[in-house]
Simulated scan of single mutants.
Amino acid sequence: MFRIEMLPAAHGDCLWIEYGAADQTHRILIDGGPAHTYPSLRERVLHLPSTQRHFDLLVVTHIDADHIEGIIRLLQDAQALDCVFDRIWFNGAPQLNQVPDPAGEALGAMQGEILGLLIKAYEEQRGESVWNKGMSEQIAYIPATAEKLPVIDLPGDCRLTLLSPDHERLLELKDHWRDELDKAGVDSGDLQTLKFKLESSRHLRPLGDVLGEDDDALELEELGFDLTWQPDDMLGSTKGEPGGDAPFGSDTSLANGSSIAFLLEYPKDKPTTRFLLAGDAWPSVLESSIERLLPQTTGQLKLTGFKLPHHGSIANLSPGLLSRIDCKHYLISTNGALFRHPHSRAVELLLERHNARAQARLHFNYLTSTTSAWADEDDQKARKYLAFHPKGISLEL
């Protein structure tokens, strides 16, 4: 059994994956969407019996608000909801500080530092290490000297191959993170200033336990913080976001470049399911990693499904990347808010690659003005593709 759901995360990502035998389901959660969509994720957790709220892996792909904020709220609620995470993958200040850099300076960004505090608090609560567990040097990246891409086996016969970020992308993020804090007037580790900002809003509060109480929730007050401030989308700023007329593969966001992306294979030895889960990664990084996986320079990576990077942005898709994969199912997570994703040229590039062959299948988790163009059944028949939109709270494949 393998199932993937795209929960309603507005303009962000929140992917819920289940696999394994019917009597032993394994789960992976990738990102949590922006703060205001967290109730949908929380409701999905509550649909499980309390004894089954166990995740083999939680992945926070990068620091952008539309991926990280829901996880900040979830980790505060984790104890009250009986949520257990065996591994949490996220590259924060401790990991970036270890990336080889001639300057060698410590760094941090507010959203990343907040999440780092919560992960550390969760580890203390669990009494075991979960942060980037299974990764070399406890950093989720492809080392510059690595001969092969990092491979991690999860319980339940699942294998993950890391495709992004590479060493250079993390180094660039490290070099610019301190600059962003300087613009915000905050020094890394300046707890007094952070506390003052955190107390100015209630944006990222947990929702408490199932009865509405929050006494048992994991609170930042225990660490000397009141997590109420709404942090800016620091390195993933909306400024300069590529529009629909941008060149293919033109993303320059350092936050997106640092995004964790991986190939999921199940069962691991003779996979019948292969998913490329791309976060907001750069297409050039994905293409380079895929080339390392292929036995021949002209071959294609056969995939069951591809979760498009950056919500179907033209800047995170390229003809070169698509030429290296053979895929039918394409997942696009967005309601089109803020940036009008997906870009029509990106979706049309997918259909053009199929050229009316093999029936491309487009999976959207919203039916909105930016996704309705591909809901026309006559157009689907004429160009031999299928499009799916959610009939309930989420789209399930």
Rank of each mutant, 00 (worst) to 15 (best):
M6P: 05
D13A: 12
Y19H: 06
A22N: 06
G32S: 08
A35I: 00
T51V: 11
Q52H: 10
R53H: 01
L57E: 00
T61A: 15
D64P: 00
E69V: 00
I88T: 05
A93P: 09
D101T: 08
P102R: 10
G108L: 08
E124Y: 11
Q125Y: 12
Q125W: 12
W131L: 13
Y141D: 07
A144T: 03
P150Q: 01
D153R: 14
P165H: 06
K174R: 14
K174W: 02
D187I: 02
D190N: 13
R205V: 02
R205M: 08
E221A: 11
M234C: 13
K239T: 05
F248Y: 15
N256R: 12
S259P: 00
S259A: 14
Y266D: 01
K270W: 04
T273L: 11
R274C: 03
A281K: 00
S289V: 13
R292L: 07
P295V: 10
G305C: 11
F306K: 12
H311N: 13
A315V: 08
R324V: 01
C327H: 09
I332T: 08
S333R: 04
L338K: 13
H343G: 06
V347D: 08
H354G: 07
R357A: 13
A358R: 08
Q359V: 12
A360Y: 02
R361P: 03
T368Q: 13
A375L: 01
